[in-house]
Design a protein around this nucleic acid. Structure first.
Lengths: 340, 340
DNA sequence: GTGAAAGCGCTAACAC
DNA sequence: GTGTTAGCGCTTTCAC
């Protein structure tokens, strides 16, 4: 690998001069600059980022911590972060931290060791307290898809409650009254918020939600299937299902189909997240769009900004989901059969 | 950030000694080691990776270059690489390089600048020649999902031809004779190989494939839809469709559905790749499983190994796809209606 | 066994 | 304008 000294020697100048032209800062004579640039090009010189990081005490690195890149949601997250980072001349290092607070803390630790200036973290397992302490120690740390009241300016989050309300109101507007809700068994903050949003909307429309009408299972396709199956076998009567997320919703559609119940003719289904798969399903899933990429990109910029200026302005970073109408919801009046 | 000197000072030893205990190498007295370790723990000292990289001339970084992490296939790729890297105490930096050879070269450039020792690259746009030169310059560079004859030991690839043959034979074994093929318009190496595999299997079964029975479009859902639509409007008669990949296959299923043709009752459809979405579709897609994660993990290990030893053994790294039977293919005899 | 010293590639004062 | 020097945090001879 060719170094700054090599360039300096060949160009017949000092390393400082080369450094100046590379960074485009400081005074350098016009002809001298041209000469040096020529040598740089000829030799294909690239500054050693590690050396730069060492001397500058910053590494221009954005760390992204999340459960698993291979899951569509997190892939989109990583992608959004990468785009924003690239614009600011940051590289991004990905750290999967799946399943436990321990894994998450190890990821942070490793990123710190690399002197990551900025970090975007999707934490599912650490407590607010732990995260607050972390945020306190690391100025460039930003949380995505999570709201921590003590550090609102460090959180880039989605209004799950309002989103769920919108979904519910949409279903109501379609004339549905017999409504089932499927949520996740372990109620994390998202699940609580979305569930409450649904209840709020239903209540204010004068539609009551009986606990017998809510299914609770794992937040994946299998969970969705199991949840509706139980609802059906319990004799619950419904013409529409509000589902916690797209994965579960797809499961719901599949199970309904297996039971000979057609979506949307017999039952309408609405999801949440707008994952890639929602469009692969037949019928395509009507769902609430979660602007992951935009949020991730925003979070990345925020993290970088915070790491550089540490100005922790009081502004909040709240995003709104919006409805995407596809094929899984229709008017209740159009329903021919009703199960139950 | 606390440095090796801080630890040395507090522990009352020299930096060299601290370095020895941190790395667990070299002779250190037992009590001395314990004392130093204690200070390390108390102070929460973490070696600065940038400094290590600088002095060791290696950064323990694995670079992953691909079009776009947010696409399910590449997410899985990144994930496989990350897992393998973590095991070897490497960090992974992701670089999206979408759409052009230029973008790919810039990604390489940036990774070199970071002194990445090992790189796993998914190149869609660079030529074999360019890639060969690169491989020559960078010992730890490995290509995934691509076979370059001149450097077989640097390529981790899938036998697309045999996979396609298997898919075709499977369809034949189900009694289908009227077969349509949908491939991509711009025939990259994968597309050619898969198409030839299909022809090989069909030929040796004495089934001829007329060019009128092949649709060529973009390799996405919309392309799949457009391709069958054309086939149908051209009056082509078929009871099964062999599709280039899952995305197109899903599009095919959707379009067929829109035309009132049922899958698999009227027409069987088989895909290739086994993306996450293949299971979201209804019916779930029968397809050839592409072991991306295993391959990526293997490629990561290979890249790291090559970067460390540069022993470029002559072995090849060929993987095999395998059939995953789900719901989109049935016996031809079971077909009630045949379109055309 | 342990420490002193040099140097990895770069930048940032400070001279000239 | 340009060069000299010191030093970022670490590892690695080489003395002792």
């Amino acid at each position: 690998m060719i170094t700054i000294k090599d360039v300096a020697r060949v160009a017949g100048v000092s390393p400082s001069t080369v450094s100046r032209v590379v960074r485009g800062e400081g005074k350098v004579g016009k002809v001298c600059r041209a000469k040096v640039q020529k040598v740089i090009d000829e030799l294909g010189y690239r500054p050693n980022i590690n050396a730069q990081a060492l001397v500058n005490q910053k590494s221009n690195t954005l760390g992204v911590i999340m459960p698993n890149v291979s899951m569509s949601f997190f892939g989109a997250l990583a992608c959004g972060a990468e785009q924003a980072a690239k614009e600011q001349n940051y590289r991004v290092v990905i750290s999967n931290a799946f399943g436990s607070e321990k894994a998450e803390m190890e990821a942070i630790d490793s990123l710190m060791q690399h002197r990551c200036d900025a970090i975007v973290m999707h934490s599912a397992h650490a407590s607010d307290e732990v995260l607050c302490k972390l945020a306190d120690k690391i100025p460039g740390l930003v949380f995505i898809n999570r709201f921590i009241p003590q550090i609102p300016n460090r959180c880039v989050w989605l209004d799950n409650n309002l989103g769920a309300q919108e979904a519910a109101r949409y279903i109501l507007s379609k004339g549905h009254i017999d409504i089932a809700v499927i949520t996740r068994e372990v109620m994390n903050s998202d699940a609580k918020l979305r569930f409450e949003g649904i209840k709020t909307a239903l209540n204010s429309a004068g539609v009551s939600l009986n606990e017998t009408n809510v299914g609770r299972r794992d937040a994946d396709m299998a969970g969705g299937r199991a949840a509706v199956r139980e609802l059906i076998s319990n004799g619950v009567k419904f013409s529409a299902v509000l589902v916690y997320n797209d994965n579960m919703a797809i499961g719901v559609i599949h199970e309904l189909h297996a039971c000979g119940i057609q979506v949307p003719q017999d039952v309408s289904v609405i999801g949440f997240d707008d994952l890639l798969i929602s469009v692969a399903c037949l019928p395509q899933l009507t769902t609430m769009h979660y602007p992951v990429e935009e949020m991730a990109s925003y979070a990345a910029k925020l993290a970088i900004e915070l790491s550089e200026n540490s100005i922790s302005s009081g502004r909040t970073h709240l995003f709104m989901p919006h409805l995407v109408e596809r094929g899984s919801v229709i008017e209740a009046t159009a329903i021919e059969t009703e199960i139950g």
